[in-house]
Every structure is written in structure tokens, then in C-alpha cells.
Design a protein around this nucleic acid. Structure first.
Length: 749
RNA sequence: UGGGGUGUCGCCAAGCGGUAAGGCACUGGUUUUUGGUACCAGUAUUCGGGGGUUCGAAUCCCUCCACCCCAUCCA
């Protein structure tokens, strides 16, 4: 856990520390209308992970408020995903549909408070009345219905007396809110649909904005973590809980950026399209980023967990490179998977000087993996090697078998090529070779040096095996649609040859096929007579890469030209202030500009000026520090006043305190409203300017950090900040930084 | 365009006024009976741009720019 904390855990820790919540409760709240994908995995890992880290609890909740799209089979897939990733949801899973009657009661409460009403506008009218992002909306005339009428209508909606679309329940908030989500959001709609759990009991179903916050509340959730697109919904979330006057503490919503990975799609809609359109074989197609797909392909839960841990959690929309995921599965399997030999594209080799046959005992793991186990490999004069591992006219740097270059058969002998047999088309059909009898693996006395060891299988006893090689589903990094599909995303090899022990021993279900990649016995279609392996991921291949990079695309760091937008011109009044500030008071134009354009700020500034004639220093603190406070609160809410600011500046002018300390004092003033002079007295913040006091500290630091001294002397001037920082730290910030600065430079000369 | 967010290496991502973490990718080298693994080394004079404040700014202030989300009776 040396890794730095993500922002959600920081929030959780602060909330725990401040006592806002006694216990951490999170939830993973998918809608059961599709198969979960790796983006859900990220959410699962965040929610369950945080609950685990802080001894809390995470609910698995099906957000089943839309009966027309949801189904039990998705519930099962979701449960399976959570379980596979190794998390536990406790006694039972939650369903929003369990709360339908509670939710209904809350809605009635809202109606009784006159904070919700039955609207009878048509769907189109509702849309029209909502306005747009730039135009405010207008409220429906039905908003004026009496509470009694609303209550009556709502009950009849529930009973199913109306057709779909005839009425809806809406919150009464603000039709001209800048946040579109707050323009009287819909709370309930009529749906005469069969719900996969609630059956036909309900004719009305709650909307997300109403159901979600209340479900969280009902379950005692403390941190309701969702993705960025719900940021605007947070206002509604809080409105519902606040308006109902629910007992504190309320749950709080926090948003993070959803996961995107290049060369794939992550939206449920697009995934559904691929499945329904037959572009893939189903939700568990190994090319899909679904949990079912990864599982079928052979990914381990650990690799997904690790991946999510590596990519972190933040609020910036981002696109993670697929190579990061591939690294994680390789990294995991490298430690776990037994190595075996499989020849994807067999080329027959006859070893002419080898007689008889033998059985070689070959370990499953290489020396650098501390695991035991071995299998028997038959060997004879007829074997197969991969067609790639022989070249008649090799390029420079080719390590494998050539007419001139011998090669080792892994775990067996060194062979050399004697003759190349070709068919009528000139294709190589067989190699005649010779072996070196004294070169056997483990007891090699031949002293022949070879550049590499290749995989092979014995011809008679090798088993045919079907291999399914997967490539990325899309050829485009950010695919838009079906036209971006990679036509070669699936390659099936029917006649690969594998060593017999893999099928007979069943040592494991995931293997590394040496020099090829990691493969997984297909959990559904594998049989002993027709073994099928899915390629999980290839090994890194620096040879292949080297060949490709010859036609490297040169990097052209085209920097987009920054366009400077137009600045709104100043009013005449502002211009007057501006020239007074620059000409009469000698402020720089930037500070004067900021001041002149901001009336609150300039008023405040004028007041400080009355107490102290130090126009530049006062302007700086007002523009930089006071402005920050004013972003949070109104002027009349400020804890400090202009007079105190003048006092603070006076102390800087009189060199009683340094500007660094002044910031510290200012922060305290902003927090408590204490008088600056009082703060200085209480804390003894008077600055130290006496070189006699500072020098010994500098010398001590110089002795303690010989490396940095050397670096500094070698020209690393950035280190000046380090030394000054150290001195300031040693004096609790009280040393006069200007003096420290000159003293340090002098000492290190 | 109103509102809400986000910009730190090719891709993720720490950092919250005092030497620009880490991972992936990439490039060298060492070890290796996997062109794998492991190990070592290299890789941002600079944090979207421009100003300002400060002894000192990725961090504070101003301003501009770019991208994402919001006008489903979806979630």
C-alpha cells in the first residue's frame, strides 16, 4: 500500500475522521439490462474495495426501475461478475424494486408538501416546456393542481386507471434552473409492464433520480459513488433527501471517470448491438470487454483486479491503452502458467541420424519460476517444428534454424539442417536434419553454441488441437460503429499440434505455449477428442517488433496553435478606475485590471487604502488572497475586514513578518476572524532576519545533504528551493526567506 | 451559447507553495535452453496558453484555449 491514495479514499478518510459517518457503506448499483463489462469491474472494485479497506460494507443492488429492459439473466451475470472478482455482498442482494412501496410513500409525502405534482402534459410538450441549455423553461399549468387532486391522481395512476403517458409525477423545483436536471424532474411514470420481480403489482415506476437517492438512504449508504455523467444529477439527489427532511446523515454522491480502453467499445448499447447483430458469438465472446468474455478467454480475476489498481481513479476522462491490460494478464500468468509446447504451423523435420525413440522428462516451469512439476515428452526421428522457426534465406539477426545455423529443440537435442525438401510449388514441405547425440538438454557435452531453443512436438504422438486466436475487435483506436470492426479479429487454427501430455495430464487449464503466448482450455467446447484452446494473450515479441519498426512513422509533434479569445472591453467606469490604479497608485496593469473589473474587490481595496497607504502591497493581497475567499463566500460573510488586512500589510511593510508568514496569518484570519496582530503575538510569528541565527541552520543542512550540495554546485540551481525550504522548515517558516536566499547562495558559492 | 466538470511524458496517474512519484509503452544493456521472465540504465529544464503574486508556482490570483457531460416518461 505504498501507492498514493485516490481521491475517493481521501474523501472517505476525511469523512471518517471528521465523524461525518461512523461506518462506510457503499453500493454497486447496476441496472440489470445487460452484461457487465470491465468498466463495471472498475466500479465493483472501487465500491467493494473501499468498503473492504475501511471495514465497511458494500451492497450489491439491482437498480431495476425500468421493467421493459431488465431481466433475471442479467442479474445472474452481474452476481457472477462480482463473485468472480472475489467480492462478497453479504446475506442477500438488494433490489430497488424491494423499496417500491416505501418510495411510493415518499412520493406522497412530497405531494403533501406541495413539492411534487401530477403533470398531464404530453411527452412532446414536456420536452418543449423544459427549454434548452440557453433558454429557461416554463412550468406546466398542471403544477397548480391542489394537493388533494394530486394525491387522488397519483393513487389512480398507481391503480392503473390511466394509459401510459397520460400523467407523470414531477418534483416542483425550478423550471428556469441553469442545471437542466433541476427543471422539475420526473419522479414517476406510468408503465403497464410486467416487472421481472414485482410482477404486475405496479402500474407506475419510479425514475432514477427519485429512486436512487432514496434507495441509498434506505440502505444507509454513506458514499454513493457513480460516474461523471451523473454530476448534474447530484443536485436532484440532494434536493430529494433534503426536501423530505430525512434524518441525517444523508448519503453523498461522488463521481469518478468511467473506464475507456482503446480498440474496444464499452457502452451497453453498442455491446448489445454486437451481440444481437451476430458480429460476435454472444455476451461471452472472448473478444468482448465483458466479464463473461474475459472469463471465457482465460483472463484471471487477479489480472483484472491488478489492472484496475494500476489505472487509478480520477475525474479526467481518459482512454487507457489496451497494452496495460495485456501487461497485467501476462504478468499474472507468467507466475502461474505451466509451459508446454504447441506447434501452430507445423513443418516436418526428419532427423536422419536418430534411431529409435525415447521419453524426455521436461519441467513445466522455467528456472526462474519457483514451482515444481514435469511431464513426459516423447521424442523420435520425426518431429514437427513451427514453419516460422526455419528460414532458407534468413535476414540479419535471425536466431533460429537455417541451412547454416543449428538450433536447439527445447528440452532435447541440437539439430542442424541437412536438406530442404520442396513440393511442386516450391514450398518447403520437409527438412532433413541431423542431431548431435552428445547435445542432450541437461547433459550437453557438445559445446555447440546455438542462438535459440525452439518448440517442437513428436510427429506420431502429437495431438491435433484447435486454436482460436483473438485480435482486437476493432481496427480503430476509438471505434464509432460496425464499420470499424477488424475483419481479422478471430483466426481459427484447426490443425495445430500439441504435445500429448497437455491433453492426457490436464495439469492445468491455462498454459503458456512456449514462445507463443498464454492459452486457455475453452470451458465450453473443449473435449478430449477435440481439444480447443483460446489464446489469452501473446508473449511479448521483440523480434517481431524489430522487423516491423523498420518502417517507423516519424513523430511530428505538431503543436496546435493556441487561439487567444477576445477579452471583453472595460466599461468607462472601469477604465477610470484602471487608470487611477495604474497611474496614481502605481499598480501593475494586471492587478489594476483585475481590481477595476471586479466591483466587490475594488470596494474592498478602497477600504483598505483608507487605513494604510501602501497601495501596491494592499492591491496584491486583495487581488490574490481576498479574491480567493470571495470565491467561496459573499463579502458580508467574510470573517475579516479591510482594516485587518491593512494591519497585516503594515506588519509586512515594517518587516515584522515575512510574506510567507503573512499567508499563514491570513488563512487564520479567514477561518476565525482573529486580529492579525493578536495572531502574531499568540504564535510568536515574528520573522527571524538575524544572519547569526540563520547561518548555523544553513550550515547544518549543508552538512546533512552533501549530495544535494554537490548537485547544486554542479549547476542544478533548482536545488536552491530545497535548501531554502529546509531552513524555513527548521524555523517553522519564521526565517526571513529573502535573507535565507542570499545567505544560502553565499554559503554554497 | 447557460450550467456542471476536466487538462501533468505516447497512454494512465501522483503531486495541494520548497529537488516533477509510480505503472504501461518505448530505447539501450546484463542474465537466460522461451527473441519470454528478471535485473540495470535512459526517457517531462517543465505541468493546456499567456500574464500576475512570491525569495521560490504544476500548486495561489486573473485571463484565454481545448475537451467531456446536461434539453430520454433511460440509468
Amino acid at each position: 500500500m505504498s501507492k498514493s491514495k485516490d481521491f475517493l479514499r481521501t474523501i472517505v478518510e476525511n469523512d471518517l475522521k471528521s465523524g461525518k459517518y461512523k461506518e462506510i457503506v457503499t453500493r454497486f448499483p447496476p441496472e440489470p439490462n445487460g452484461f457487465p463489462h470491465i468498466g463495471h469491474a472498475k466500479s465493483i472494485i472501487i465500491n467493494f474495495g473501499i468498503a473492504n479497506d475501511y471495514q465497511g460494507h458494500c451492497n450489491l443492488r439491482m437498480d431495476d426501475t425500468n421493467p421493459t429492459t431488465e431481466d433475471t439473466k442479467y442479474v445472474e451475470a452481474l452476481k457472477d461478475a462480482v463473485e468472480w472478482l472475489g467480492f462478497n455482498w453479504g446475506d442477500s442482494i438488494c433490489f430497488t424494486s424491494n423499496y417500491f412501496s416505501k418510495l411510493y410513500d415518499y412520493a406522497i409525502e412530497l405531494i403533501k408538501m406541495d413539492r411534487a405534482y401530477i403533470d398531464s402534459l404530453s411527452e412532446d410538450e414536456i420536452r418543449e416546456y423544459r427549454g434548452s441549455v440557453t433558454k429557461s423553461g416554463k412550468r406546466s399549468k398542471y403544477a397548480e393542481r391542489s394537493i388533494e387532486e394530486n394525491l387522488d391522481l397519483f393513487e389512480r395512476m398507481k391503480k392503473g386507471e390511466f394509459k401510459e403517458g397520460e400523467h407523470v409525477l414531477r418534483a416542483k423545483i425550478d423550471m428556469s434552473a441553469a442545471n437542466m436536471k433541476m427543471r422539475d424532474p420526473l419522479l414517476y411514470r406510468i408503465k403497464h409492464a410486467h416487472h421481472f420481480r414485482a410482477g404486475d403489482e405496479w402500474s407506475i415506476y419510479p425514475m432514477y433520480d427519485f429512486a436512487h437517492c432514496l434507495s441509498d438512504y434506505i440502505e444507509g449508504v454513506s458514499h454513493s459513488i457513480c460516474t461523471l455523467e451523473f454530476e448534474n444529477n447530484r443536485d436532484v439527489y440532494n434536493w430529494v433527501l433534503d426536501t423530505l427532511g430525512l434524518e441525517l446523515p444523508h448519503p453523498h454522491q461522488h463521481e469518478f471517470a468511467r473506464l475507456n480502453i482503446n480498440y474496444t467499445v464499452m457502452s451497453k448499447r453498442k455491446l448489445l448491438e454486437l451481440v444481437q447483430g451476430g458480429q460476435v458469438s454472444g455476451w461471452d465472446d472472448p473478444r468482448l470487454p465483458t466479464i463473461a468474455g474475459y472469463k471465457r478467454r482465460g483472463y484471471t480475476p487477479e489480472s483484472i483486479l491488478n489492472f484496475c489498481d494500476q489505472i487509478g481513479i480520477a475525474k479526467a476522462n481518459s482512454m487507457v491503452d489496451i497494452s496495460q491490460l495485456e501487461f497485467c494478464i501476462r504478468d499474472d500468468l507468467n507466475k502461474k502458467a505451466p509451459r508446454v509446447m504447441c506447434v501452430l504451423d507445423p513443418l516436418k523435420v526428419t532427423i536422419e541420424n536418430y534411431k529409435g525413440r525415447e521419453v524426455i522428462d521436461a519441467p513445466y516451469y522455467p528456472d526462474d519460476i519457483a514451482k515444481d512439476g514435469s511431464r513426459e515428452m516423447p521424442f523420435s526421428n520425426e518431429i514437427y517444428i513451427d514453419r516460422n522457426d526455419f528460414m532458407e534465406q534468413p535476414p540479419k539477426g535471425y536466431y533460429r534454424l537455417t541451412p547454416q545455423q543449428p538450433v536447439r529443440l527445447k528440452h532435447a537435442y541440437i539439430i542442424k539442417c541437412k536438406e530442404i525438401i520442396k513440393d511442386a510449388n516450391g514450398n518447403i514441405s520437409e527438412i532433413k536434419a541431423e542431431y548431435y547425440p552428445e547435445s542432450k538438454s541437461g547433459c550437453d557435452s557438445s559445446s555447440i553454441k546455438v542462438k535459440s531453443a525452439i518448440q517442437w512436438v513428436e510427429a506420431k504422438q502429437a495431438k491435433p488441437v484447435e486454436l482460436r486466436l483473438y485480435d482486437r475487435l476493432f481496427k480503430d483506436e476509438a471505434p464509432e460503429g460496425l464499420e470499424d470492426i477488424n475483419p481479422n479479429s478471430l483466426q481459427i487454427i484447426k490443425d495445430a499440434l500439441i504435445e500429448p501430455a497437455v491433453v492426457s495430464d490436464k495439469f492445468d487449464e491455462r498454459f503458456q505455449f512456449e514462445r507463443e503466448g498464454y492459452f486457455y482450455a475453452d470451458p465450453i467446447e473443449y473435449t478430449d477428442t477435440n481439444p480447443v484452446f483460446n489464446k489469452i494473450v501473446g508473449l511479448k515479441d521483440s523480434w517481431n517488433k524489430k522487423k516491423k519498426t523498420t518502417s517507423n512513422t516519424p513523430k511530428c509533434p505538431i503543436k496546435k496553435a493556441q487561439i487567444d479569445g477576445e477579452v471583453i472591453p472595460m466599461s468607462t467606469k472601469q477604465q477610470g478606475l484602471f487608470s487611477r490604479y495604474t497611474i496614481d497608485l502605481g499598480l501593475n496593469s494586471e492587478v489594476a485590471n483585475t481590481l477595476a473589473r471586479d466591483e466587490t474587490l475594488s470596494n474592498f481595496y478602497e477600504k483598505t487604502l483608507k487605513k494604510l497607504h501602501s497601495p501596491v502591497a494592499l492591491a496584491n493581497i486583495v487581488v490574490n488572497e481576498v479574491a480567493r475567499e470571495l470565491k467561496q463566500v459573499q463579502v458580508d460573510e467574510l470573517k475579516f475586514n479591510a482594516e485587518q488586512i491593512s494591519e497585516l500589510i503594515k506588519m509586512i511593510d515594517d518587516e515584522i513578518v515575512s510574506s510567507k508568514i503573512a499567508k499563514q496569518i491570513f488563512e487564520q484570519m479567514a477561518k476565525t476572524g482573529e486580529n492579525p496582530i493578536q495572531i502574531v503575538e499568540d504564535k510568536g510569528l515574528i520573522q527571524i532576519s538575524d544572519p547569526a541565527k540563520i547561518l548555523p541552520i544553513i550550515d547544518e543542512i549543508i552538512i546533512k545533504n552533501p549530495d544535494n550540495v554537490a548537485k547544486f554546485k554542479a549547476g542544478n540551481s533548482k536545488l536552491l528551493g530545497f535548501f531554502i525550504g529546509q531552513v524555513l522548515k527548521n524555523t517553522n517558516g519564521k526565517a526571513n526567506p529573502k535573507i535565507v536566499n542570499t545567505l544560502v547562495i553565499e554559503r554554497l558559492k
